[in-house]
């Protein structure tokens, strides 16, 4: 985690409290220092409010640009009414330094905020911790399944007459495209990914027009990728943990017949079975 405070003494005391609680802490004294400290392992940023080069909301903006799921906690002597208003969507946790044993409270809140993706801008599956462990158990590269999946997604684009077909695994922070025909996508942040919603249901998920669906109409990234319609079927492991989804994408609004969705389910079943068989053959790490 990162702990930011322009005041050396206060920052040092906060870092010590967090380290005593078992956190790995990088100290920062400015907004730009927070930006420099951010890496893929940071999952929480505790920040004071005033810095020489900006304020706490600038820190939140910087953090969320790089790490959309990262928990942000304001730890400041300013009361809520003294804080200027940030962006309406810069939601953070807040612990005032004025409460008794403030650093103990901070540790409690940080422990809660880092236990799971608590500031995620998308719905989380109930069993997210077990689900993530299940996803990690499948190393697709090691399973040598990519070529098989590429063949399947190529078949799907022809079969459904669509622009793009892919197999995506939903990791902790992003969806990872392990096979993709019709586009060169590698990853997509979970808050921008429709599959984030698909993994919540055992039914096929259809978005006939992203512009008409309130969950996705404001997601600019989908427009940038020319994703206007979507059909997806989730893939699970033997225990029922959702690993990701097999999906159809087009740049025009379109609907899917029941027969087409049954076919999509068959493609997804094929992917599930390939993953399972290859893991049983010992290709992938547990």
């Amino acid at each position: 985690m990162v702990c930011a405070d322009a005041d050396d003494e206060r920052r040092s005391a906060t870092v010590t409290a967090l380290e005593s609680a078992g956190f790995d802490v990088l100290a920062a004294s400015s907004v730009s220092a927070v930006e420099a400290a951010l890496d893929d392992d940071v999952d929480c940023v505790v920040t004071a409010f005033r810095f020489p080069d900006g304020d706490g909301f600038d820190v939140v903006g910087t953090v969320r640009d790089r790490r959309p799921d990262c928990a942000c906690v304001f730890f400041t002597s300013a009361s809520p009414s003294e804080l200027p208003r940030g962006g309406r969507d810069q939601i953070v946790e807040y612990v005032p330094q004025s409460v008794p044993d403030a650093r103990d409270r901070l540790v409690d809140v940080v422990e809660g905020a880092t236990a799971e993706a608590t500031q995620a801008a998308y719905p989380l599956p109930e069993n997210e911790t077990e689900r993530l462990a299940a996803v990690r158990a499948y190393d697709v590269a090691e399973l040598s399944a990519e070529a098989t999946f590429e063949r399947l997604t190529a078949l799907m684009t022809t079969h459904f007459d669509i622009d793009v077909a892919f197999v995506g695994l939903v990791d902790e922070h992003e969806e990872r495209f392990v096979a993709c025909t019709g586009a060169n996508w590698r990853t997509l942040a979970r808050e921008d990914s429709i599959c984030t919603h698909t993994i919540l249901t055992d039914e096929e998920m259809v978005v006939e027009d992203t512009h008409e669906d309130p969950r996705f109409a404001e997601v600019d990234r989908l427009d940038e990728l020319n994703i206007r319609s979507y059909a997806g079927a989730r893939i699970t492991d033997e225990e029922g943990n959702a690993l990701g989804a097999v999906c159809c994408i087009d740049d025009e609004p379109r609907s899917y017949t029941r027969a087409e969705l049954d076919d999509l389910r068959r493609f997804a079943d094929e992917v599930e079975e390939q993953l399972l068989l290859r893991r049983r053959l010992g290709g992938g790490g547990e």
Binding site: D89, Q119, A121, E191, V219
Partner: peptide
């Protein structure tokens, strides 16, 4: 009041998480 539903998810996740852990 929020055209984009994602901030509402973030808000609900933040509040329910505080309640759960506290």
């Amino acid at each position: 009041y929020n055209d984009d539903v994602r901030p509402v998810f973030r808000f609900v996740n933040t509040v329910t998480s505080r309640i759960r852990t506290a």
